[in-house]
Write a protein that binds this DNA or RNA. Structure first.
Lengths: 228, 228
DNA sequence: GACTCAATTATGTCTATACATAAACGTAAT
DNA sequence: ATTACGTTTATGTATAGACATAATTGAGTC
Protein backbone atom coordinates (compact mmCIF):
# COMPACT_ATOMS: atom_id res chain seq x y z
CA UNK A 1 0.00 0.00 0.00
CA UNK A 2 1.36 3.41 -0.98
CA UNK A 3 1.10 5.45 2.15
CA UNK A 4 2.87 8.73 1.62
CA UNK A 5 1.03 11.64 3.18
CA UNK A 6 0.25 12.81 -0.34
CA UNK A 7 -1.60 9.59 -1.04
CA UNK A 8 -3.66 10.00 2.08
CA UNK A 9 -4.27 13.61 1.12
CA UNK A 10 -5.46 12.56 -2.33
CA UNK A 11 -7.67 9.79 -1.06
CA UNK A 12 -9.26 12.07 1.54
CA UNK A 13 -9.83 14.73 -1.11
CA UNK A 14 -11.43 12.13 -3.32
CA UNK A 15 -13.79 11.17 -0.55
CA UNK A 16 -14.73 14.80 -0.02
CA UNK A 17 -15.26 15.57 -3.68
CA UNK A 18 -17.20 12.39 -4.31
CA UNK A 19 -19.39 13.23 -1.29
CA UNK A 20 -18.30 10.04 0.37
CA UNK A 21 -17.68 12.35 3.28
CA UNK A 22 -20.54 14.83 3.23
CA UNK A 23 -20.16 18.56 3.85
CA UNK A 24 -20.43 19.30 7.54
CA UNK A 25 -19.95 15.68 8.57
CA UNK A 26 -17.31 14.42 10.96
CA UNK A 27 -14.65 12.27 9.41
CA UNK A 28 -12.88 9.43 11.25
CA UNK A 29 -10.26 10.62 13.67
CA UNK A 30 -6.55 10.49 13.01
CA UNK A 31 -5.96 7.30 14.92
CA UNK A 32 -8.65 5.48 12.98
CA UNK A 33 -7.36 6.69 9.64
CA UNK A 34 -3.83 5.78 10.60
CA UNK A 35 -5.08 2.28 11.30
CA UNK A 36 -6.97 2.16 8.01
CA UNK A 37 -4.00 3.33 5.95
CA UNK A 38 -1.51 1.39 7.98
CA UNK A 39 0.70 4.33 8.86
CA UNK A 40 1.60 6.53 11.80
CA UNK A 41 -0.79 9.16 13.08
CA UNK A 42 1.70 11.89 12.21
CA UNK A 43 1.39 10.97 8.56
CA UNK A 44 -2.37 11.28 8.64
CA UNK A 45 -1.97 14.52 10.55
CA UNK A 46 0.20 15.98 7.79
CA UNK A 47 -2.32 15.06 5.13
CA UNK A 48 -5.29 16.45 7.01
CA UNK A 49 -3.48 19.64 7.97
CA UNK A 50 -2.77 20.19 4.33
CA UNK A 51 -6.43 19.75 3.44
CA UNK A 52 -7.48 22.04 6.26
CA UNK A 53 -5.02 24.61 5.01
CA UNK A 54 -6.56 24.41 1.56
CA UNK A 55 -10.00 24.96 3.03
CA UNK A 56 -11.47 21.48 2.57
CA UNK A 57 -11.55 20.52 6.24
CA UNK A 58 -12.14 22.24 9.52
CA UNK A 59 -10.33 20.86 12.51
CA UNK A 60 -10.85 21.57 16.17
CA UNK A 61 -9.22 19.95 19.13
CA UNK A 62 -11.37 17.46 20.86
CA UNK A 63 -14.23 18.20 18.45
CA UNK A 64 -12.63 16.36 15.56
CA UNK A 65 -12.35 17.06 11.85
CA UNK A 66 -15.27 17.84 9.61
CA UNK A 67 -15.71 18.63 5.94
CA UNK A 68 -16.09 22.36 5.38
CA UNK A 69 -19.76 23.17 4.97
CA UNK A 70 -19.44 25.76 2.24
CA UNK A 71 -16.14 24.95 0.69
CA UNK A 72 -15.20 28.58 0.26
CA UNK A 73 -12.39 27.65 -2.02
CA UNK A 74 -9.45 29.96 -2.14
CA UNK A 75 -7.73 31.04 -5.27
CA UNK A 76 -4.16 32.05 -5.18
CA UNK A 77 -3.48 35.28 -6.94
CA UNK A 78 0.13 35.96 -7.77
CA UNK A 79 0.80 39.62 -7.19
CA UNK A 80 1.47 41.10 -10.58
CA UNK A 81 5.08 41.90 -11.12
CA UNK A 82 4.32 43.38 -14.50
CA UNK A 83 7.53 42.21 -16.11
CA UNK A 84 6.75 38.59 -15.31
CA UNK A 85 3.13 39.04 -16.28
CA UNK A 86 4.25 40.13 -19.75
CA UNK A 87 7.21 37.85 -20.23
CA UNK A 88 5.20 34.81 -19.20
CA UNK A 89 3.09 35.45 -22.29
CA UNK A 90 6.21 35.39 -24.44
CA UNK A 91 6.12 39.12 -25.04
CA UNK A 92 8.87 41.66 -24.64
CA UNK A 93 8.65 43.94 -21.64
CA UNK A 94 9.66 47.58 -21.66
CA UNK A 95 8.66 50.79 -19.95
CA UNK A 96 8.68 54.52 -20.55
CA UNK A 97 8.86 57.16 -17.87
CA UNK A 98 6.23 59.74 -18.74
CA UNK A 99 6.97 62.11 -15.89
CA UNK A 100 8.98 62.20 -12.71
CA UNK A 101 9.07 64.98 -10.15
CA UNK A 102 9.31 65.68 -6.47
CA UNK A 103 6.20 67.10 -4.89
CA UNK A 104 4.16 66.97 -1.72
CA UNK A 105 1.82 64.02 -1.73
CA UNK A 106 -1.82 64.97 -2.39
CA UNK A 107 -4.54 64.26 0.12
CA UNK A 108 -6.17 61.17 -1.41
CA UNK A 109 -2.89 59.29 -1.55
CA UNK A 110 -1.86 60.55 1.90
CA UNK A 111 -5.12 59.29 3.31
CA UNK A 112 -4.78 55.93 1.56
CA UNK A 113 -1.38 55.45 3.15
CA UNK A 114 -2.48 56.78 6.52
CA UNK A 115 0.02 59.61 6.56
CA UNK A 116 -0.73 62.51 8.88
CA UNK A 117 1.67 65.07 7.52
CA UNK A 118 2.60 65.72 3.90
CA UNK A 119 6.05 64.24 3.51
CA UNK A 120 8.43 64.71 0.64
CA UNK A 121 7.37 62.43 -2.11
CA UNK A 122 8.14 61.64 -5.69
CA UNK A 123 5.48 61.34 -8.34
CA UNK A 124 6.22 59.03 -11.26
CA UNK A 125 4.06 58.22 -14.23
CA UNK A 126 5.10 55.18 -16.21
CA UNK A 127 3.80 53.41 -19.26
CA UNK A 128 4.40 49.67 -19.41
CA UNK A 129 4.67 48.05 -22.82
CA UNK A 130 4.29 44.51 -24.07
CA UNK A 131 5.90 44.06 -27.49
CA UNK A 132 5.86 47.86 -27.83
CA UNK A 133 2.10 47.95 -27.27
CA UNK A 134 0.69 49.83 -24.30
CA UNK A 135 -0.06 47.37 -21.52
CA UNK A 136 -0.73 49.51 -18.46
CA UNK A 137 -0.39 53.07 -17.26
CA UNK A 138 0.95 53.62 -13.77
CA UNK A 139 0.52 56.66 -11.56
CA UNK A 140 2.72 56.24 -8.51
CA UNK A 141 3.57 58.22 -5.38
CA UNK A 142 6.61 57.25 -3.36
CA UNK A 143 7.14 58.27 0.24
CA UNK A 144 10.75 59.45 0.20
CA UNK A 145 10.93 59.29 3.99
CA UNK A 146 10.65 55.49 3.68
CA UNK A 147 12.93 55.04 0.65
CA UNK A 148 15.18 58.12 0.29
CA UNK A 149 17.39 56.32 -2.21
CA UNK A 150 14.57 56.27 -4.70
CA UNK A 151 15.53 59.74 -5.97
CA UNK A 152 18.70 58.16 -7.37
CA UNK A 153 16.98 55.14 -8.92
CA UNK A 154 17.93 54.83 -12.61
CA UNK A 155 14.39 54.55 -13.85
CA UNK A 156 15.46 54.57 -17.46
CA UNK A 157 16.97 51.14 -16.93
CA UNK A 158 14.75 49.65 -14.26
CA UNK A 159 11.06 50.22 -13.74
CA UNK A 160 9.87 51.86 -10.51
CA UNK A 161 8.05 48.68 -9.65
CA UNK A 162 11.15 46.52 -9.95
CA UNK A 163 13.43 49.00 -8.23
CA UNK A 164 11.15 49.03 -5.21
CA UNK A 165 10.77 45.26 -5.13
CA UNK A 166 14.52 44.88 -5.12
CA UNK A 167 15.42 47.73 -2.79
CA UNK A 168 12.56 48.27 -0.40
CA UNK A 169 11.87 45.48 2.04
CA UNK A 170 8.18 45.25 2.53
CA UNK A 171 5.89 43.60 4.95
CA UNK A 172 2.34 44.02 3.77
CA UNK A 173 -0.07 45.92 1.61
CA UNK A 174 -3.48 45.98 0.03
CA UNK A 175 -4.78 45.51 -3.48
CA UNK A 176 -7.99 46.91 -4.87
CA UNK A 177 -9.30 45.99 -8.27
CA UNK A 178 -12.15 47.97 -9.75
CA UNK A 179 -13.58 49.08 -13.07
CA UNK A 180 -13.51 52.73 -14.15
CA UNK A 181 -13.42 54.89 -17.27
CA UNK A 182 -9.96 55.42 -18.71
CA UNK A 183 -10.06 59.17 -18.05
CA UNK A 184 -6.66 60.82 -18.21
CA UNK A 185 -4.96 57.50 -18.90
CA UNK A 186 -6.80 57.22 -22.22
CA UNK A 187 -4.20 58.88 -24.49
CA UNK A 188 -1.44 56.64 -23.15
CA UNK A 189 -3.48 53.48 -23.68
CA UNK A 190 -4.86 54.47 -27.08
CA UNK A 191 -8.48 54.40 -26.08
CA UNK A 192 -11.37 56.75 -25.40
CA UNK A 193 -11.71 58.52 -22.01
CA UNK A 194 -14.92 56.59 -21.36
CA UNK A 195 -13.51 53.16 -22.23
CA UNK A 196 -13.93 50.82 -19.25
CA UNK A 197 -10.60 49.77 -17.80
CA UNK A 198 -9.51 47.50 -15.01
CA UNK A 199 -7.92 49.59 -12.28
CA UNK A 200 -5.55 48.27 -9.64
CA UNK A 201 -4.87 50.41 -6.61
CA UNK A 202 -2.07 49.18 -4.46
CA UNK A 203 -0.83 50.42 -1.10
CA UNK A 204 2.48 49.10 0.13
CA UNK A 205 3.84 49.41 3.63
CA UNK A 206 7.34 48.67 4.84
CA UNK A 207 8.18 47.36 8.27
CA UNK A 208 7.65 50.81 9.74
CA UNK A 209 6.45 53.35 7.22
CA UNK A 210 4.14 53.52 4.19
CA UNK A 211 6.19 53.16 1.04
CA UNK A 212 4.12 53.75 -2.04
CA UNK A 213 0.70 54.25 -3.52
CA UNK A 214 0.04 53.04 -7.04
CA UNK A 215 -2.86 53.40 -9.40
CA UNK A 216 -2.46 51.11 -12.35
CA UNK A 217 -4.78 51.40 -15.35
CA UNK A 218 -4.66 48.31 -17.52
CA UNK A 219 -5.18 48.54 -21.24
CA UNK A 220 -8.62 47.52 -22.56
CA UNK A 221 -9.40 43.80 -22.60
CA UNK A 222 -7.13 43.03 -19.66
CA UNK A 223 -8.26 39.92 -17.80
CA UNK A 224 -7.33 38.85 -14.31
CA UNK A 225 -7.27 35.10 -14.59
CA UNK A 226 -7.39 32.69 -11.67
CA UNK A 227 -7.66 28.96 -11.27
CA UNK A 228 -9.22 27.16 -8.36
CA UNK B 1 13.47 29.83 24.90
CA UNK B 2 10.14 29.58 23.10
CA UNK B 3 10.78 27.20 20.26
CA UNK B 4 7.49 26.32 18.69
CA UNK B 5 7.67 26.02 14.93
CA UNK B 6 5.65 29.21 14.72
CA UNK B 7 8.36 31.08 16.59
CA UNK B 8 10.99 29.83 14.20
CA UNK B 9 8.69 30.73 11.32
CA UNK B 10 8.28 34.25 12.67
CA UNK B 11 11.97 34.77 13.35
CA UNK B 12 12.91 33.53 9.89
CA UNK B 13 10.30 35.80 8.32
CA UNK B 14 11.70 38.70 10.30
CA UNK B 15 15.17 37.99 8.97
CA UNK B 16 13.84 37.91 5.43
CA UNK B 17 11.82 41.08 5.72
CA UNK B 18 14.61 42.97 7.48
CA UNK B 19 16.99 41.82 4.72
CA UNK B 20 19.09 40.08 7.31
CA UNK B 21 18.82 37.22 4.83
CA UNK B 22 19.08 38.83 1.41
CA UNK B 23 16.93 37.87 -1.56
CA UNK B 24 18.53 35.06 -3.47
CA UNK B 25 20.93 34.16 -0.67
CA UNK B 26 21.29 30.75 0.90
CA UNK B 27 20.14 30.50 4.47
CA UNK B 28 21.70 28.16 7.06
CA UNK B 29 20.62 24.57 6.64
CA UNK B 30 18.09 22.87 8.85
CA UNK B 31 20.62 21.20 11.08
CA UNK B 32 22.37 24.50 11.80
CA UNK B 33 19.11 26.28 12.55
CA UNK B 34 18.01 23.42 14.76
CA UNK B 35 21.23 23.86 16.71
CA UNK B 36 20.74 27.63 16.90
CA UNK B 37 17.17 27.38 18.13
CA UNK B 38 17.83 24.38 20.31
CA UNK B 39 15.18 22.16 18.78
CA UNK B 40 14.83 19.13 16.55
CA UNK B 41 15.39 19.38 12.81
CA UNK B 42 11.78 18.39 12.18
CA UNK B 43 10.64 21.54 13.94
CA UNK B 44 12.81 23.74 11.73
CA UNK B 45 11.60 21.77 8.73
CA UNK B 46 7.98 22.55 9.56
CA UNK B 47 8.71 26.26 9.88
CA UNK B 48 10.67 26.48 6.64
CA UNK B 49 8.13 24.42 4.72
CA UNK B 50 5.49 26.85 5.83
CA UNK B 51 7.54 29.80 4.59
CA UNK B 52 8.27 28.06 1.31
CA UNK B 53 4.58 27.40 0.92
CA UNK B 54 3.86 31.07 1.40
CA UNK B 55 6.40 31.96 -1.25
CA UNK B 56 9.16 33.44 0.91
CA UNK B 57 11.66 30.63 0.47
CA UNK B 58 12.67 28.27 -2.26
CA UNK B 59 13.93 24.87 -1.22
CA UNK B 60 15.71 22.24 -3.22
CA UNK B 61 17.21 19.00 -2.09
CA UNK B 62 20.91 19.08 -1.74
CA UNK B 63 21.00 22.70 -2.98
CA UNK B 64 19.62 24.13 0.24
CA UNK B 65 17.12 26.86 1.02
CA UNK B 66 17.29 30.37 -0.36
CA UNK B 67 15.22 33.51 -0.04
CA UNK B 68 12.93 33.96 -3.02
CA UNK B 69 14.51 36.44 -5.41
CA UNK B 70 11.39 38.30 -6.42
CA UNK B 71 9.05 37.69 -3.57
CA UNK B 72 6.10 37.27 -5.84
CA UNK B 73 3.75 37.44 -2.94
CA UNK B 74 0.54 35.56 -3.23
CA UNK B 75 -2.76 36.92 -2.13
CA UNK B 76 -5.45 34.53 -1.18
CA UNK B 77 -8.73 35.35 -2.75
CA UNK B 78 -11.76 33.77 -1.21
CA UNK B 79 -14.07 32.66 -3.98
CA UNK B 80 -17.08 34.93 -3.81
CA UNK B 81 -20.03 33.18 -2.33
CA UNK B 82 -22.15 36.25 -2.77
CA UNK B 83 -24.23 35.68 0.34
CA UNK B 84 -21.16 35.73 2.53
CA UNK B 85 -19.72 38.66 0.65
CA UNK B 86 -22.81 40.69 1.48
CA UNK B 87 -23.52 39.43 4.96
CA UNK B 88 -19.91 40.02 6.02
CA UNK B 89 -20.60 43.71 5.42
CA UNK B 90 -23.58 43.55 7.78
CA UNK B 91 -26.08 43.84 4.95
CA UNK B 92 -29.09 41.68 4.22
CA UNK B 93 -28.80 39.28 1.32
CA UNK B 94 -31.59 38.43 -1.05
CA UNK B 95 -32.05 37.46 -4.67
CA UNK B 96 -34.60 37.67 -7.44
CA UNK B 97 -34.93 35.25 -10.33
CA UNK B 98 -35.31 37.37 -13.45
CA UNK B 99 -35.73 34.48 -15.85
CA UNK B 100 -35.37 30.73 -15.93
CA UNK B 101 -35.79 28.47 -18.92
CA UNK B 102 -34.46 25.35 -20.54
CA UNK B 103 -32.57 25.87 -23.79
CA UNK B 104 -29.61 24.62 -25.73
CA UNK B 105 -26.42 26.23 -24.58
CA UNK B 106 -25.11 28.89 -26.97
CA UNK B 107 -21.71 28.58 -28.63
CA UNK B 108 -19.66 30.98 -26.50
CA UNK B 109 -20.61 29.23 -23.28
CA UNK B 110 -20.20 25.80 -24.87
CA UNK B 111 -16.74 26.74 -26.00
CA UNK B 112 -15.83 28.13 -22.59
CA UNK B 113 -16.82 24.86 -20.98
CA UNK B 114 -15.19 22.77 -23.69
CA UNK B 115 -18.41 21.02 -24.66
CA UNK B 116 -18.49 19.43 -28.09
CA UNK B 117 -22.19 18.91 -28.46
CA UNK B 118 -25.02 21.17 -27.35
CA UNK B 119 -26.44 19.47 -24.28
CA UNK B 120 -29.65 20.29 -22.54
CA UNK B 121 -29.07 23.28 -20.36
CA UNK B 122 -30.89 25.70 -18.17
CA UNK B 123 -30.46 29.43 -18.45
CA UNK B 124 -31.03 31.47 -15.30
CA UNK B 125 -30.76 35.20 -14.79
CA UNK B 126 -30.59 36.34 -11.21
CA UNK B 127 -30.32 39.67 -9.47
CA UNK B 128 -28.51 39.68 -6.13
CA UNK B 129 -29.44 42.34 -3.62
CA UNK B 130 -27.73 43.81 -0.60
CA UNK B 131 -30.18 45.58 1.70
CA UNK B 132 -32.62 45.59 -1.24
CA UNK B 133 -30.13 47.45 -3.43
CA UNK B 134 -28.85 45.80 -6.60
CA UNK B 135 -25.48 44.21 -5.94
CA UNK B 136 -24.79 42.03 -8.96
CA UNK B 137 -26.52 40.63 -12.00
CA UNK B 138 -25.86 37.01 -12.88
CA UNK B 139 -26.29 35.30 -16.23
CA UNK B 140 -25.81 31.59 -15.75
CA UNK B 141 -25.92 28.45 -17.90
CA UNK B 142 -26.15 25.08 -16.22
CA UNK B 143 -25.22 21.83 -17.94
CA UNK B 144 -28.15 19.59 -17.01
CA UNK B 145 -26.21 16.50 -18.00
CA UNK B 146 -23.93 17.14 -15.03
CA UNK B 147 -26.61 18.20 -12.53
CA UNK B 148 -30.02 16.95 -13.72
CA UNK B 149 -31.57 17.72 -10.33
CA UNK B 150 -31.10 21.40 -10.95
CA UNK B 151 -34.41 21.60 -12.79
CA UNK B 152 -36.13 20.90 -9.48
CA UNK B 153 -34.08 23.38 -7.45
CA UNK B 154 -36.39 25.74 -5.53
CA UNK B 155 -34.68 28.91 -6.70
CA UNK B 156 -37.20 31.14 -5.01
CA UNK B 157 -35.80 30.03 -1.69
CA UNK B 158 -32.17 29.35 -2.48
CA UNK B 159 -29.99 31.12 -5.01
CA UNK B 160 -28.58 29.15 -7.97
CA UNK B 161 -25.10 29.76 -6.63
CA UNK B 162 -25.88 28.27 -3.25
CA UNK B 163 -27.87 25.38 -4.62
CA UNK B 164 -24.93 24.34 -6.77
CA UNK B 165 -22.42 24.77 -3.99
CA UNK B 166 -24.48 22.52 -1.78
CA UNK B 167 -25.56 19.95 -4.33
CA UNK B 168 -22.91 19.73 -7.00
CA UNK B 169 -19.57 18.39 -5.91
CA UNK B 170 -16.92 20.21 -7.81
CA UNK B 171 -13.28 19.82 -8.42
CA UNK B 172 -11.95 22.86 -10.15
CA UNK B 173 -12.71 25.91 -12.22
CA UNK B 174 -11.47 29.23 -13.48
CA UNK B 175 -12.19 32.85 -12.64
CA UNK B 176 -11.78 35.79 -14.96
CA UNK B 177 -12.20 39.35 -13.82
CA UNK B 178 -12.41 42.10 -16.39
CA UNK B 179 -13.93 45.54 -16.94
CA UNK B 180 -16.70 46.09 -19.45
CA UNK B 181 -19.66 48.37 -20.13
CA UNK B 182 -22.84 47.41 -18.31
CA UNK B 183 -24.70 46.69 -21.57
CA UNK B 184 -27.84 44.65 -21.08
CA UNK B 185 -27.24 44.39 -17.34
CA UNK B 186 -27.67 48.17 -16.99
CA UNK B 187 -31.41 48.29 -16.24
CA UNK B 188 -31.06 45.72 -13.47
CA UNK B 189 -28.19 47.56 -11.84
CA UNK B 190 -29.70 51.03 -12.23
CA UNK B 191 -26.93 52.43 -14.37
CA UNK B 192 -26.25 53.46 -17.95
CA UNK B 193 -25.34 50.87 -20.62
CA UNK B 194 -21.89 52.44 -20.93
CA UNK B 195 -21.15 52.50 -17.20
CA UNK B 196 -17.92 50.54 -16.52
CA UNK B 197 -18.58 47.46 -14.46
CA UNK B 198 -16.46 44.74 -12.98
CA UNK B 199 -17.26 41.46 -14.69
CA UNK B 200 -16.56 38.02 -13.28
CA UNK B 201 -16.70 35.06 -15.60
CA UNK B 202 -16.55 31.71 -13.90
CA UNK B 203 -16.33 28.22 -15.35
CA UNK B 204 -16.93 25.33 -12.98
CA UNK B 205 -16.16 21.70 -13.65
CA UNK B 206 -17.25 18.69 -11.66
CA UNK B 207 -15.26 15.52 -11.29
CA UNK B 208 -16.22 14.46 -14.80
CA UNK B 209 -18.27 17.02 -16.65
CA UNK B 210 -18.51 20.81 -16.95
CA UNK B 211 -21.16 22.10 -14.60
CA UNK B 212 -21.84 25.77 -15.13
CA UNK B 213 -20.80 28.98 -16.80
CA UNK B 214 -21.51 32.24 -15.04
CA UNK B 215 -21.16 35.84 -16.05
CA UNK B 216 -21.54 38.11 -13.07
CA UNK B 217 -21.85 41.88 -13.52
CA UNK B 218 -21.19 43.73 -10.31
CA UNK B 219 -22.93 47.01 -9.57
CA UNK B 220 -20.90 50.18 -10.11
CA UNK B 221 -18.20 50.95 -7.55
CA UNK B 222 -17.61 47.31 -6.70
CA UNK B 223 -14.09 46.73 -5.41
CA UNK B 224 -12.24 43.48 -5.21
CA UNK B 225 -10.15 43.92 -2.11
CA UNK B 226 -7.13 41.81 -1.21
CA UNK B 227 -4.50 41.90 1.49
CA UNK B 228 -0.99 40.64 1.13
C1' DG C 1 -33.12 22.72 35.77
C1' DA C 2 -28.72 25.38 36.16
C1' DC C 3 -24.08 25.42 37.47
C1' DT C 4 -19.23 23.69 38.54
C1' DC C 5 -15.46 21.13 37.75
C1' DA C 6 -12.90 17.15 36.68
C1' DA C 7 -12.30 13.36 33.27
C1' DT C 8 -11.99 12.34 28.60
C1' DT C 9 -10.59 12.81 23.96
C1' DA C 10 -9.08 14.54 19.32
C1' DT C 11 -5.96 17.44 17.56
C1' DG C 12 -1.41 20.10 17.97
C1' DT C 13 3.24 19.77 18.45
C1' DC C 14 8.03 18.17 19.66
C1' DT C 15 11.67 14.61 19.75
C1' DA C 16 14.99 11.24 18.14
C1' DT C 17 15.85 8.27 14.68
C1' DA C 18 15.88 6.41 10.27
C1' DC C 19 15.84 6.06 5.55
C1' DA C 20 14.60 8.14 0.78
C1' DT C 21 15.75 11.23 -2.85
C1' DA C 22 17.40 14.94 -5.66
C1' DA C 23 21.13 17.45 -6.92
C1' DA C 24 25.72 19.15 -6.64
C1' DC C 25 30.43 17.72 -6.44
C1' DG C 26 34.65 15.33 -7.46
C1' DT C 27 37.13 11.93 -9.49
C1' DA C 28 38.30 8.91 -13.06
C1' DA C 29 37.89 7.31 -17.64
C1' DT C 30 37.26 8.67 -22.39
C1' DA D 1 37.60 19.11 -22.44
C1' DT D 2 33.94 16.15 -21.84
C1' DT D 3 31.46 12.48 -20.09
C1' DA D 4 30.27 9.00 -16.65
C1' DC D 5 29.64 7.56 -12.23
C1' DG D 6 29.94 7.11 -7.46
C1' DT D 7 29.97 10.14 -3.14
C1' DT D 8 28.25 13.60 -0.38
C1' DT D 9 24.82 16.48 1.41
C1' DA D 10 20.45 19.05 2.36
C1' DT D 11 15.90 18.43 2.18
C1' DG D 12 11.67 15.17 2.20
C1' DT D 13 9.25 12.03 4.67
C1' DA D 14 7.92 8.17 7.97
C1' DT D 15 7.77 6.41 12.78
C1' DA D 16 6.92 5.62 17.76
C1' DG D 17 6.41 7.89 21.66
C1' DA D 18 5.39 11.68 24.55
C1' DC D 19 3.23 15.65 26.32
C1' DA D 20 0.32 20.04 25.51
C1' DT D 21 -4.04 22.09 24.73
C1' DA D 22 -8.71 22.99 23.67
C1' DA D 23 -13.19 21.61 24.14
C1' DT D 24 -16.80 18.44 24.90
C1' DT D 25 -18.89 15.25 28.19
C1' DG D 26 -20.68 13.94 32.15
C1' DA D 27 -20.88 13.46 37.04
C1' DG D 28 -21.83 15.75 41.08
C1' DT D 29 -23.84 19.78 43.42
C1' DC D 30 -26.92 23.49 44.43
Amino acid sequence: MATGWQDIHDEALRRIQSRDWLPGALIPNEAALAREFGCARATVNRALQSLANAGWLERRRRAGTRVTLSPQRRAQLAIPLIRQEIESKGQIFSHIIISRQNATMPSPQRAALGLQDAPNAQHVQTLYLADARAYAFEDRWINLAAVPDFVAAPLDRISPNEWLVQNAPFAHGTLDYSAAPAGTAAPHLNCQPDTPLMILERRTFGLDAPVTHVRLSYAPNFHLHLKI
